[in-house]
Amino acid sequence: MATAIQCRDLRKTYDGKVEAVRGLNLEIQTGECFGLLGPNGAGKTTTIEILEGLLEPTSGEVSILGHSWRENERELREWLGISLQETRLSEKLSVRETVGLFASFYREPRSTDDVLEEMQLTEKADAWVGKLSGGQRQRLAVATALVSNPKILFLDEPTTGLDPQSRRQLWDIIGEFQGAGGTVLLTTHYMDEAERLCDRLAIVDYGQIIAEGTPADLIERLGGHHVVEFAISGNSDSAALEIWQELPSVESVREEDGMVGLSVREPHLTIPALLDAIDKQGHQLEHLTTRQASLEDVFVRLTGRHLREE
């Protein structure tokens, strides 16, 4: 399998002060859907814009489909489709005019009507962009990227601010593009989106990759597929956390807002032992849930923070 996107020791410093990206390495294969996952301000957008050739890195190498931006910008532009985090397209142009305009920049674009059909925008083809809903605008943004018939699709937070139905529509579109052999690089701060779409992902924090792998890998590395969360009456101080660590099958313990969370391999071994332990301490169980571990747990485990925190 050929490498679609590769970067080595990427760094970007704004105004000589703010280090947005601090030594980032990536290798993305063709046909892959790769996700950059991280909180706001982690350096995701800076990274993707450097890869798109829209920002000059302070240092480091970027290679797209084996070419560098410096030498083959024009060719590369023909091969990429990009959707920026926030582009306000001209409100007084119709959907068809907008896609047609973008198509005119490429040597061999796809038919505008095909793309509109695929994006479920045919009904809105003659409507002005200003009249579209948020979901339709976002689909239009992706349509302007897909009309070029790209080999690689870059999407910067494609579903931020969309309603659940619009998100799912976009996911289907991205899935179809990948199914037809396309490579996708997307950024997101939604866990479910990353788990659902990405073959592999990198968790980015403070301009560096802190973990990389398939979603299942990353969760596996957490040391348990299940999370048991409970609360008990009375205060459980930090010393008490050690007790939970001793329970069978528990991999790690954390506490938050009076709830204790255990990463657990086999809940059927942990839970009876947990109930016994609480009983012995003379506390009352006030709350108990178990669920599948998610990428959110991975992120919290790695950074001690939640993804959506500013």
Binding site: L54, L80, L84, E86, T87, L89, S90, F105
Partner: peptide
């Protein structure tokens, strides 16, 4: 301001 110039520059325009 609308980032449209940036979007255009992302094409072979």
């Amino acid at each position: 301001q609308r980032k449209l110039l940036k979007r255009f520059v992302g094409t072979p325009m």
